[in-house]
Design a protein around this nucleic acid. Sequence first.
DNA 1: GTTCCCCTGCGG
DNA 2: CCGCAGGGGAAC
Length: 291
Amino acid sequence: MPELPEVEITRRRIAPLLVGRRISGVTTTRDSYLYLTPPAQLRRGLEGRLVTDLARRGKYLVATLDDAQRLLIHLGMTGQLFAETATSVRLLSATARQALAPEEQVRFAPDAHTHLQVAFDDGGPRVFLRDVRKFGKLRLLGPDEPEPRLDRLGVDALAVSGELLFAVSRRRKLAVKNLLLDQSILAGVGNIYADESLFLAGVRPTRRALRVTRAEFARIAEALVAVLRRSIETGGSSIRDFVAPDGSDGHYQDERRAYGRTGEPCLVCGTAIVRILVGQRGTHYCRRCQR
DNA sequence: GTTCCCCTGCGG
DNA sequence: CCGCAGGGGAAC
């Protein structure tokens, strides 16, 4: 679910509820591959620690603790990190949702998908991590313990340049969209913002990377940064699951030009947006505007 | 390079 | 019932 803008919004809004607070208790669910660190070890390592920093690397969040451990968090497709005080129907199961009157607010109760509950010694609001599909990841790193997932990451997508993309794309036969999705090249781009930036740049997602010109990569890089910045400004994309830690929705979905607009008219030329598969991912583009 | 898998829920 | 979903990693 979350790409760079959603992870950045999550970071900004959950940081005040983590940084400077001391963890008094941690509850986990049963072991699964969500836990790169076994839950019991995670609880032992976190309890009693003060959180000193929360940073973003690509789509990862990294919380630093006062004993120099780091907690690595990846939200996968359906991960939600939020405060106990948040109110949003996106935090409820469909059945719980249906039981609600239209404008009713209900307090979230940790459910089977709430894999992490963190309480603090100040007695204030707890922080929850919910992840229905469990594609997310949690790992507690010892001081200076290496983490290949982080070491592999390329340049943050907000800092991309056309020259960089042009340089790494020579001799690469893959579709240009898949180049943008490669986290070892660009950290933070996912399916929505890949489609959106290629639309704005007028480049077809299936074009082989080595056939994309320097000028086109300049446009792609410019579009990508603009789209990511604008999405952060508007609170990210709340299409299915994404909800900010305070319970609010993002609004970038209202500004989408390609992603998920299959059959709808291109906002530039009116041609119906088509959906194809590129590397197993749904891909949306305008066959007239994007060549 | 593709292909398949991890897992759960929703909407057609 | 089937296909689909803001991700990523391992196996052909």
